[in-house]
Simulated scan of single mutants.
Amino acid sequence: MSEKLKDNNVDQKNRRIGLICGGIFCAMVGVSFAAVPLYDMFCRATGFGGTPMRVEQVSDVILDRTITVRFDSNTSPGLPWEFKPKERQVELRIGETAEAFYVARNKADVATAGTASFNVSPELAGAYFNKLECFCFTEQELQPGQAYEMPVQFFVDPEIVNVPELKNIKTITLSYTFHPLTKATAEVQAPAAKKRIGG
């Protein structure tokens, strides 16, 4: 009888340990799926890794000092688009709001879709590069031969001059990369702030 009780206690302990291990495994799987969006939210909130900050209002301080913002564009393999900035660079005062345009054109004879990611270099400047409007992470679909102008509105936070590593910075590069999407993996939406220029 005591042997049976002992076996039952061992079985209960093994079940409990199995449930705990299963719970830990499920939690780890959940955390791994949440890691990418959480990391993206962290980068957008802090400017970590050269991710520009997203803001709702313009700067109320504009300095006399100017800075050059260069525009870079890339397209991932598998997306038959021509993608480039309308201007290669712009010079503006720190704190001043500026607007730039990128143009994407579908070179394929079928509709294709993409979404853009972005970063700023030097990375440390990402926390001081503020975007008011942009086309990043918006799913875009272009018909054969169609082209769209996509605006980005931004300013460089005047606080950048108080950062020892950035106080003498002369140039910031804003870089976008378009990645392919398929209709099977994403519901494609037409962006609200894009202007058709051909097609």
Results as ranks from 00 to 15, higher is better:
residue 70 R to N: 13
residue 132 L to T: 07
residue 84 K to T: 02
residue 5 L to F: 06
residue 18 G to H: 00
residue 100 A to I: 11
residue 194 K to N: 10
residue 53 M to N: 07
residue 111 A to N: 09
residue 102 Y to E: 03
residue 177 T to V: 13
residue 149 E to K: 13
residue 97 T to R: 01
residue 55 V to K: 12
residue 149 E to D: 14
residue 101 F to V: 05
residue 51 T to Y: 01
residue 54 R to M: 14
residue 159 E to G: 14
residue 20 I to W: 01
residue 119 N to I: 08
residue 165 E to H: 07
residue 151 P to V: 01
residue 138 T to H: 08
residue 186 A to P: 07
residue 165 E to K: 02
residue 122 P to H: 00
residue 158 P to C: 02
residue 52 P to K: 01
residue 144 P to A: 10
residue 143 Q to A: 08
residue 101 F to Y: 14
residue 110 V to H: 02
residue 172 I to G: 01
residue 10 V to A: 12
residue 163 V to W: 00
residue 188 V to W: 09
residue 20 I to Y: 04
residue 71 F to T: 06
residue 74 N to T: 08
residue 56 E to Y: 07
residue 189 Q to G: 04
residue 174 L to P: 00
residue 171 T to S: 03
residue 4 K to P: 07
residue 30 G to S: 14
residue 139 E to M: 14
residue 69 V to G: 01
residue 144 P to G: 11
residue 99 E to R: 14
residue 7 D to C: 10
residue 71 F to Y: 14
residue 148 Y to D: 11
residue 36 V to D: 06
residue 24 I to D: 09
residue 192 A to C: 09
residue 18 G to K: 01
residue 168 N to G: 05
residue 198 G to W: 09
residue 97 T to M: 11
residue 132 L to E: 14
residue 37 P to E: 10
residue 46 T to G: 04
residue 126 G to L: 00
residue 106 N to K: 10
residue 141 E to Y: 09
residue 44 R to A: 08
residue 167 K to V: 00
residue 147 A to Y: 09
residue 55 V to I: 15
residue 199 G to C: 11
residue 3 E to M: 11
residue 193 A to V: 10
residue 190 A to I: 15
residue 140 Q to F: 08
residue 89 Q to P: 00
residue 113 A to M: 11
residue 37 P to G: 07
residue 115 T to R: 12
residue 52 P to V: 01
residue 59 S to D: 04
residue 98 A to I: 07
residue 198 G to A: 15
residue 15 R to E: 06
residue 139 E to L: 12
residue 12 Q to D: 12
residue 115 T to N: 09
residue 98 A to E: 03
residue 61 V to K: 06
residue 100 A to V: 14
residue 121 S to I: 05
residue 146 Q to E: 15
residue 80 P to N: 11
